[in-house]
Design a protein around this nucleic acid. Structure first.
Lengths: 110, 110
DNA sequence: TTTTAATGGGCCTTAAATTACTCAAATCAG
DNA sequence: CTGATTTGAGTAATTTAAGGCCCATTAAAA
């Protein structure tokens, strides 16, 4: 039950970038860490973890903070998000609902 | 210490999209939920939370799962991540290290 | 330069997420 | 269609992140 996660380099890089984007956004908006954390409803401590690119924070919290300082997710504006979502929804309905493996060996392309 | 967070619409949309991208990626790679969760070192339950766009999972875990099924963060490939990171690092050194508010009222553009 | 707000980090408590089962419903392969 | 696999869901126990406090250091403003 030990968790002791390890993260790939891509993940670490992405987290680091995300944190820096948020910090830069905060500074550009001239917000102190305390101010931003209060607006986000978290503590200064948690905000610092996020800005430092630590892996443990809740994704909802991180996205919320990002939105507060103008860091866009998926490089699209708010309106476009809904469109993307709908499109993905449709795509999912076209894909099989579950994955089944054949009895016979199938060449796994991994 | 009650948390009971609330999330903005943008955040919810982004989470929903992210979850769907991951699920679509998993299906396209023909991985079962169990298989992907094992590769990510999490339980099937946690994976479902992520695919359902719930806000509570750790961002590191979500990014890791995303990477496993080929969902790109920031729409860039792995090599470019390092470049982005370095560029941001430089940008941060140019910004003030801390934000100070003047005694006199300053017109807050918020 | 001086002042003092802002940041960084440690530590303990508490609430929430993850885990680890189990079972039912859905759905795909044969 | 049928059967076996996959997924969806609920619960309790465990692990962990967030909260909240403190103090030291840094750095922007006067």
């Amino acid at each position: 039950m030990k968790r002791a996660r390890s993260y790939s380099r891509v993940t670490k890089q992405a987290l680091s970038i995300f944190g820096k984007l948020i910090k830069a956004g905060r500074l550009e908006h001239k917000l102190t860490a305390t101010e931003l954390s209060e607006r986000a409803g978290i503590t200064r401590r948690t905000l610092r973890n996020i800005e430092n690119g630590e892996a443990g924070s809740e994704i909802g919290t991180v996205f919320e903070v990002a939105a507060l300082v103008g860091v866009r997710l998926f490089d699209v504006d708010e309106r476009t998000l809904a469109t993307h979502n709908a499109h993905l929804e449709e795509k999912l309905t076209l894909l099989p609902k579950s994955v089944r493996h054949r009895k016979q060996e199938v060449d796994d392309d991994f």
